[in-house]
Computed example of a mutant assay.
Amino acid sequence: MSHKARGWLGSNSDCSWLLSGISGVFSAITGVLIANVFYTSNLEIQIVGWTALMTIIILFLVNLQLALLVHNGYRN
């Protein structure tokens, strides 16, 4: 393997770790927002939590629909 290929693989691995870390941070923030729905009586915070939960559900359903379309051979 050439030196150039190892550098490319290393930077690819670094980007993967960075994106994984950023994803974890956003996941933790979203989890706190959703947990606040059940642990606070402040209406504004509950609205933010419910909005975050609905957004995650919608993104999950869209992702599931796209995966099923690809699995069933849908072509653009």
Rank of each mutant, 00 (worst) to 15 (best):
M1W: 09
S2L: 00
S2Q: 00
K4M: 08
K4L: 07
K4V: 14
A5E: 15
A5R: 12
A5F: 14
A5Y: 13
R6V: 07
R6T: 11
R6K: 12
G7M: 08
L9K: 14
G10R: 11
S11D: 12
N12K: 10
N12P: 12
S13H: 14
S13W: 14
D14L: 08
D14K: 03
D14M: 00
D14P: 04
C15R: 09
S16L: 13
S16Q: 09
S16V: 12
W17C: 06
W17E: 15
W17M: 10
W17G: 08
L18A: 14
L19M: 10
L19D: 11
S20W: 09
G21T: 14
I22K: 06
S23N: 05
S23T: 08
S23G: 10
S23Y: 00
G24Y: 05
G24C: 08
G24V: 06
F26E: 11
S27P: 06
S27A: 12
A28M: 13
A28R: 13
G31M: 08
V32D: 00
V32W: 01
V32Q: 01
L33Q: 01
L33Y: 10
L33C: 03
I34C: 04
I34G: 03
A35T: 12
A35Q: 00
N36A: 04
V37S: 01
F38D: 04
Y39S: 09
T40D: 07
T40Y: 09
L43G: 03
L43S: 11
E44P: 01
E44H: 06
E44F: 06
I45D: 04
Q46F: 00
Q46N: 05
G49C: 07
T51G: 05
A52S: 14
A52L: 06
L53T: 08
L53D: 08
L53Y: 12
M54I: 10
M54P: 04
T55W: 08
T55E: 08
T55N: 13
I56V: 15
I56P: 01
I57E: 03
I57P: 03
I58K: 00
L59R: 03
F60P: 00
V62Q: 00
V62E: 05
N63A: 07
L64E: 15
Q65K: 00
L66M: 10
A67D: 12
A67F: 11
A67K: 09
L69T: 09
L69H: 15
V70I: 05
H71Y: 13
N72V: 01
N72D: 15
N72T: 12
G73K: 08
G73T: 09
Y74L: 02
Y74V: 06
N76Q: 06
